[in-house]
Design a protein around this nucleic acid. Sequence first.
DNA 1: TCAAAAGTGTTGCATATACACCCATGG
DNA 2: CCATGGGTGTATATGCAACACTTTTGA
Lengths: 242, 242
Amino acid sequence: MSESYKGLSTQNYIAQLSIDCVIFGYQNGTLKVLVPKLNFQGDFWGLPSGFIYQEEDVDQAAKRILEDRTQMKDIYLEQFHVFGNANRNNAEFMSSLLVQNPQLQGSKEEYDWFVRRFVSIGYYALVDIKKVKPQTTPIDEKMEWVDINQLPNLLLDGKEIIAKALQALRANFDDHLVGYNLLTETFTMKELQKLYETIFDKPFRRNNFQKMMLDLNMLDRLEKQFTGAANKAPYLYKFKEI
Amino acid sequence: MSESYKGLSTQNYIAQLSIDCVIFGYQNGTLKVLVPKLNFQGDFWGLPSGFIYQEEDVDQAAKRILEDRTQMKDIYLEQFHVFGNANRNNAEFMSSLLVQNPQLQGSKEEYDWFVRRFVSIGYYALVDIKKVKPQTTPIDEKMEWVDINQLPNLLLDGKEIIAKALQALRANFDDHLVGYNLLTETFTMKELQKLYETIFDKPFRRNNFQKMMLDLNMLDRLEKQFTGAANKAPYLYKFKEI
DNA sequence: TCAAAAGTGTTGCATATACACCCATGG
DNA sequence: CCATGGGTGTATATGCAACACTTTTGA
């Protein structure tokens, strides 16, 4: 949705098939997604997205799009759903875009390529917010981390895509111990608990949570973290190497 | 994979995007899939598949393909994964096909349309075997129910697709009480247990299984089934209407 | 010595598993 | 009345939620 469209039809992409990414990050006790604000009148946002080269695996395309947008390597990435309603097209968006940004005017062929109906494959990514360097495209005004509970206006079925991504994330969270990707290298048990509480949107009991996590045998306990506060210093933990 | 290709490029389909269906059925204590044997030299089988019309929802396309192949309505259907490796194309298959079946020769344009790399969306379906009337296409020699543990040679990543479908089926089975679609209207507890044992490939204890099922409160108990055997007659059950 | 927050232990409840018994059926 | 298989009840084990208590830290 937020890809510059000039020259698209000549770039050897698969037509009518796109990838939409839901990039999850976690900061200050809130779950966030990285989304671009589109560079045209009104308050409209998209999802980081792109297309698939003819010679490219779909998974590889998703990886490339993600890396371009975040300037990170080895991102945790999971395909979760295909969005294929017949009315998914960029016609309305493009009209508005071109009125506001006549300099983006491309060829008729490129325009037609872009405004057709698109089927989109959804991927979600988990990243450490502090390591991401968000990259905009020519049609983005900016790209920002927004709270998952305060999403702006999203083009097309953007909200549905994010909702489905969160659902998939929750389902995978326990199995894959995926929290790994959302935290810094080391963290306290309280920080880990807060992450879980944010993602599942429900409280856990401190002692039982600690027991649960330690029983999983996935954490290494490191030195204590002395914060200067007048209380017992918490241990730092890290996820075990595999 | 098993769609006749003549006239494909003129039929207003989305190019390079297909749907592959894994149709599960259950009979005599074995889980089966319905697959077409392809009408060319050698022992090669495909998956029931098809394409998406420009004006058609992807889900709707899957439904149409399924209904065409089985002559059934209201089939339980679930999208489970996208298969997008760059080497997924029908070139090899088509060469062999045309050598064996010169009468299928179409235009160059249609040939080119069909042998390009395809991204395929996987759906699995659950059906009552006895209600299905398998329909072949011009390039199928026949279509048969084969044991999931004795799959024939499948084109491309057919085996991987079926494996992933089974995985998704297992994950959904408890949540969605999906067994409903694989059994006849009425059944005994033993038959239901055998279905579970087949799908999960592990034994359950008779008494505990019964308790588990009844506690779910999803079954209506009907009259007894007198089989003539010298033992207590089992009750028949059916899934409750919603 | 005190408050605050971290760490650990212990109980009780709910659920699942295992074991045991009783009942209907037809020969 | 017996063998067979179906139905149900009860004990045991397991896992998790709730509660209680102890330890560490800096003021």
